[in-house]
Amino acid sequence: MKPARHPLAFDAIVVLAALAGLANLPARAQTCAAPTPLPADSTVTSFTCGAENFTPPALSGPGAVLRLALDHPVSLDLTLAGIEPQFDPALCVMDAANPCGAGPCLATGNALTPIMLDNLPAGAYWVIVTASPSSAAGSCGMFGLTSQIVPADTILANGFD
């Protein structure tokens, strides 16, 4: 005779499996005070909801804050993707010498226009994802951000085709 199975056993397994899939997502609140590090050559999946709230002119609404630290000049490519169909994300790279969200964007992008910065100097940068300017006020959602970082001296050493 088989032992009786608890009726919630399957539900608990499904919930644990779903949570395990979310384990690689950073914490929801990526603020200026606690930004998520942006690793080289990686994809970060996260949310703008519940994160830092920005005011115009450079940024507007809830936004996720990532921090990029460079030891040497690089070529930086950032590709942004909205994961939810109702969320249209936008991207801004700012020099971290300015307060978070307060300086001008060095470059902007969105899901259709990646950011490509050649010979970006060593230093620290804010990488901020918010809703696009054409979105409704307060819009937020889930996004994916892929970074590709190549040291500038590698590009020069390999020459041009």
Rank of each mutant, 00 (worst) to 15 (best):
P73K: 05
P99W: 15
R67H: 02
M142Y: 03
L19C: 14
F10W: 05
T108S: 07
M1L: 13
T36S: 10
T154Y: 11
I149Q: 13
T55I: 12
G138V: 15
L145F: 05
P114A: 11
A40V: 06
L106R: 13
C32F: 09
P35A: 06
A69R: 14
L19I: 14
A12P: 00
A58V: 12
S75Q: 05
E84T: 13
T45H: 07
D41K: 12
A64R: 01
A4R: 15
A20W: 15
T113N: 15
T113E: 06
S46K: 04
A69N: 11
L117Y: 10
S75H: 06
P3S: 08
S132L: 02
P85G: 12
S60C: 04
T108A: 01
Q30R: 12
S134C: 06
P39I: 13
G141L: 05
G82L: 15
V150Y: 03
P62N: 09
G21K: 09
P62Y: 06
G82R: 12
T48P: 06
A96F: 15
T146A: 09
T130G: 02
D161I: 05
C100H: 13
I149P: 03
I149M: 14
I83L: 15
A58H: 05
V65S: 02
E52Y: 03
D41W: 05
L16C: 13
A17P: 01
S46V: 06
N24L: 07
G61C: 08
T36C: 10
M142Q: 14
I115G: 01
T79L: 08
I155P: 00
I83D: 07
A20D: 15
L80N: 00
A23Y: 13
D71F: 08
M94I: 12
T154H: 15
A124M: 02
A90P: 02
F47H: 14
C49V: 11
T154I: 09
T36E: 04
L70Y: 04
A4F: 12
Q148E: 06
D11W: 13
V65C: 05
S139Y: 06
E52L: 04
L38K: 02
L91T: 00
T45Y: 01
L66F: 00
A90T: 04
C140T: 09
L106S: 08
F54L: 08
P56K: 12
I13W: 03
T36I: 04
I115F: 02
A17G: 08
A17V: 12
L106I: 14
H72W: 04
I115V: 13
N98D: 10
D77Y: 09
V127K: 02
V93C: 04
A9R: 10
A33V: 04
T79A: 15
V127S: 02
Q30Y: 00
N110E: 00
G50M: 11
P3Q: 11
D88S: 14
L80M: 09
P39D: 10
P35T: 04
G159M: 05
P3Y: 08
H6I: 06
A34K: 14
